[in-house]
Design a protein around this nucleic acid. Structure first.
Length: 488
RNA sequence: GGCGGCGUAGCCAAGUGGCUAAGGCAGUGGUCUGCAAAACCAUUAUUCAUCGGUUCAAAUCCGAUCGCCGCCUCCA
């Protein structure tokens, strides 16, 4: 009935209930817009898309905010390299991001605020922090004073002393404590600049999320999410800022998803081992990527490989094949015919929704939920295979309603959205277009083969079949004649 | 060094105290076929990194060991 979510803050799975009945407020840290997004970013958006879809499926109203960081050091550096403005650069990659989201088939968030459009709110929050004794200004910069926030480290489960011992902190004379972090940075000549009580400058990275979540969701809200790498320092600092400014608890539940890895190493800009979303979508349909992402639990690392994508594609084909074949079955059955369905298989189909929901309620276990879908597919296939020439009314009803349920549930993950017959046809067409043989040539060869088969010249018939197979054309002999399809 | 996580069949991946250790891919066997292919069905872990411990009962809890990964610096 209720959803349980693993909360980073407590380190445990907790039964979830929103602060405001029936209405969930969710803030997710979005991208810094200075480059194309890679599949690690894709996983993030996909995971939260699935979570939001599921919560809405459960009947909640969900306000989903995902920000853009459109001003920071990396953007300034990249804009300079490209001889453009930070604004142009950021907008260009925000547009690219929106294109990627559309290609992936994600539902847009309720709001997508940008840091630069919320400067007054950011300044107000810094003023609050100074007034409350949690921040100090030095020569046009403003820093957060971590020593004054007793609970600093509560999210990432570390304490100031341990972090100091880690000692990979750059020395900054202006800071009272090396762990203090910038809320406002004074601008150097040529850098973008906004007026503030401390002089011209720009916001630090962490403060924008505190200011925007407060503006759009309030001081306290339900869920805050992002990648595991954001736990420290970004989210730790957000808590410190927001709670020190408001005196109220910040996000109740923290969701952090795992990384995408390549050969078991984190995909990252610095390692240069990343693949962009558009590179992947050139090779694979979006649903294949979605299938791949959701076949692993969101907190587990996800290792990207060609093999994994091929497996995902094969799995998706299996689902679509099943649904396509059922869709071609008649709607009306024979009321006098005996049912061909076994009790066990009927239960597998009728209990699908219940099992799916149970899996998803358990910390959005999409991998298990998909397992249940496949379980139902097997049952549908078994029944379908056992169907007599004039199938029973009850069997057809069961198959059609089972297929409908599968598509409804899969839609939560953004899967099986396309008509399955169309999916298969498009896939074939795409491959035919790349084929090194024309349809006319195929037809000619098939005619020749049919003649050979009539004469029982099996050697020649097999020879032609092998010849076509070399071109990836598979043929299928049946009582109604020979058909062909492209090997997929 | 501090903190966190992971190690389940050939590969991927659920399961976190007790019914037969989900599901997918690949493989093998079968149905079908002139033989095939496709599709479908069946089948594939006495065992969950290793070693101890707790318990009537552990993949699941505790401890140790080995291996891998992440955060502590920009990062989804």
């Amino acid at each position: 009935m209720t959803v349980s979510i693993y909360n980073t803050k407590s380190g445990k799975k907790e039964v979830f209930s929103p602060l405001e009945k029936g209405h969930i407020k969710l803030y997710v840290c979005g991208i810094t817009a200075y480059d194309f997004c890679h599949i690690g970013h894709a996983r993030s958006t996909l995971v939260f898309d699935m979570i939001v879809n599921y919560l809405r499926y459960k009947g909640y109203k969900v306000t989903y905010v995902r920000n853009f960081t459109d001003i920071d050091d990396k953007i300034i550096k990249r804009a300079r390299e490209q001889h453009t403005t930070t604004e142009e650069l950021a907008n260009r990659f925000i547009d690219a991001f929106h294109e990627d989201m559309k290609s992936l088939g994600n539902t847009p968030p309720t709001l997508e605020p940008k840091a630069t459009e919320n400067i007054p709110e950011i300044i107000k929050m810094i003023e609050d922090l100074i007034a409350n004794g949690f921040a100090y200004a030095v020569d046009g910069d403003v820093y957060y004073k971590v020593a004054n926030f007793d609970e600093y480290g509560k999210l990432s489960r570390r304490n100031l002393d341990d972090m100091m011992a880690g000692a990979r902190i750059s020395i900054n004379e202006q800071k009272q404590n090396p762990m203090d972090f910038a809320l406002w940075k004074s601008s150097k000549p040529g850098e973008p600049v906004w007026d503030s009580p401390w002089g011209g400058g720009r916001p630090g990275w962490h403060i924008e999320c505190s200011a925007m979540s407060r503006k759009y969701l309030g001081d306290s809200f339900d869920i805050h999410g992002g990648g595991k790498d954001l736990i420290f320092p970004h989210h730790e600092n957000e808590i410190a800022q927001s709670e020190a400014a408001s005196g109220k608890p910040f996000a109740a539940t923290w969701i952090h998803h795992g990384f995408v890895t390549i050969k078991d190493e984190k995909m990252s800009k610095s390692l240069g081992n990343f693949l962009t979303i558009r590179e992947i979508l050139e090779k694979y349909p979006a649903e294949v990527l979605r299938f791949f992402v959701f076949s692993t639990h969101y907190r587990t690392p996800l290792d990207f490989s060609e093999t994994a994508m091929k497996d995902a594609e094969a799995g998706l084909d299996r689902l679509n094949t099943c649904l396509a074949e059922i869709s071609q079955l008649p709607k009306e059955g024979n009321p006098d015919q005996k049912s061909a369905a076994g009790k066990k298989n009927i239960t597998k189909i009728t209990s699908l929704t219940e099992r799916f929901v149970k899996a998803m309620d358990n910390d959005f276990n999409s991998a298990q939920a998909m397992g249940h879908i496949f379980d139902a597919v097997k049952a549908l296939n078994t029944i379908k295979q056992a169907l007599p020439a004039s199938p029973a009314e009850s069997d057809l009803t069961l198959l059609h309603s089972g297929a409908k349920t599968i598509r409804e549930l899969a839609a939560i993950m953004g899967l099986l959205k396309k008509d399955p017959l169309l999916y298969i046809k498009e896939k074939q067409d795409k491959i035919i277009s790349r084929l090194d043989i024309t349809e006319a040539e195929i037809d000619n060869l098939l005619q020749e083969r049919n003649k050979a088969r009539e004469q029982k010249n099996w050697a020649r018939a097999d020879e032609i079949r092998d010849q076509l197979l070399c071109h990836n054309v598979e043929i299928k002999d049946s009582s109604e004649g020979t058909t062909w399809q492209v090997k997929i």
